[in-house]
């Protein structure tokens, strides 16, 4: 089944004369991990907020074209209803954790949709276990570390048992170790629970191996959409879109330019190592 499908979607926020998204047509299947890549103001947040109906239900906007999430027309479905299908994680942990204890934070969603208490308890335990925060139940969220806060935000979304998880720049406040942990967790969610995951980021460097697919946005338009090895090696398009290309992919392109016909494209560290070692070994015969 399709996790979501946007068809010729246009978004214009009320009071703005710029299109935040312009003629976006994207369909994502369930179980995919998709990187939504773009600079600031490329439309990443708008894309994310369309998926759980915050746009246009909470943030007034004119939305043209169809937005369908797990078979439901978003324009006719409330944010509260969509919340059981789409989990949303925002960039700053501080403003999305508003409860006084970890367990209340995770229970907040299920409580709102009147899940029976026994079921809430088991969901809370499950979600905290998945993100590695078991036993943190009574701790105040404000006392957690940055990485723990972001995992708590994920647990708070997971307790609604969503099929689609949308993360809008989740690595924003994390250190490199925290980012590594976060991406490992996302991989687990897909592998163990078959969850569809959308990650919006400005930078693809540490995500090249996690994603199945990359959608490159520029000024509200999709300019590339495909496998990471394909999209992330279109260096010029990424540069124009204001996104820095992953270093290894960039290197591959630069070498292909400098030594035409002498190197094969590579995408991983291992591939790069082998290719350059070969290139150095076979020196001689270059045009000066």
């Amino acid at each position: 089944m399709r996790a979501f499908e946007l068809t010729k979607t246009r978004v214009r926020y009320r009071g703005s004369d710029i299109l935040a998204l312009c003629d976006v047509s994207v369909g994502v299947d369930e179980g995919e991990i998709v990187l939504l890549l773009g600079s600031n103001n490329a439309g990443k947040s708008t894309f994310c907020r369309l998926l759980n109906g915050l746009v246009p239900h909470s943030i007034p906007a004119q939305v043209d074209g169809a937005v369908e999430v797990l078979g439901r027309d978003v324009s006719k479905t409330s944010v509260a209803r969509l919340a059981t299908l789409v989990g949303m994680v925002f960039q700053e942990p501080e403003s999305q954790l508003f409860c006084m204890s970890v367990e209340e934070e995770v229970a907040f969603g299920p409580e709102n949709i009147a899940i029976p208490r026994a079921e809430i308890i088991s969901r809370v335990e499950w979600a905290l276990g998945v993100v590695g925060l078991s036993g943190y139940n009574a701790r105040p969220p404000s006392n957690l570390s940055g990485g723990e806060k972001q995992r708590l935000a994920i647990a708070a979304a997971l307790s609604m048992r969503p099929r689609l998880l949308v993360l809008d720049e989740p690595a924003y406040a994390l250190d490199p170790a925290g980012r590594t942990d976060l991406y490992a967790l996302l991989r687990t969610l897909r592998e163990r629970y078959g969850m569809t995951i959308i990650i919006a980021e400005r930078d693809a460097e540490e995500l090249t191996e996690l994603c199945d697919r990359v959608i490159l946005l520029r000024s509200g338009r999709v300019v590339a959409d495909g496998a990471p090895s394909e999209v992330l090696s279109r260096i010029d398009e990424m540069v124009v879109a204001g996104v820095s290309p992953p270093q290894i992919a960039h290197l591959s392109a630069l070498l292909a330019d400098r030594f035409p016909g002498k190197t094969r494209p590579f995408f991983t560290m291992g591939g790069a190592e082998k290719e350059i070692a070969d290139l150095v070994r076979t020196s001689g015969g270059d045009a000066p």
Binding site: D175, A177, E205, E206, L251, M269, A272, E273, I276, A277
Partner: peptide, 23 residues
């Protein structure tokens, strides 16, 4: 890693290539 940091891929690659004498 002990300092919760991560070297950039290019730096790592260059070091590996140096270690095997390619650069």
């Amino acid at each position: 890693r002990r300092c919760k940091l991560l070297a950039p891929p290019i730096t790592v690659l260059a070091q590996r290539l140096r270690a095997q004498g390619a650069l």
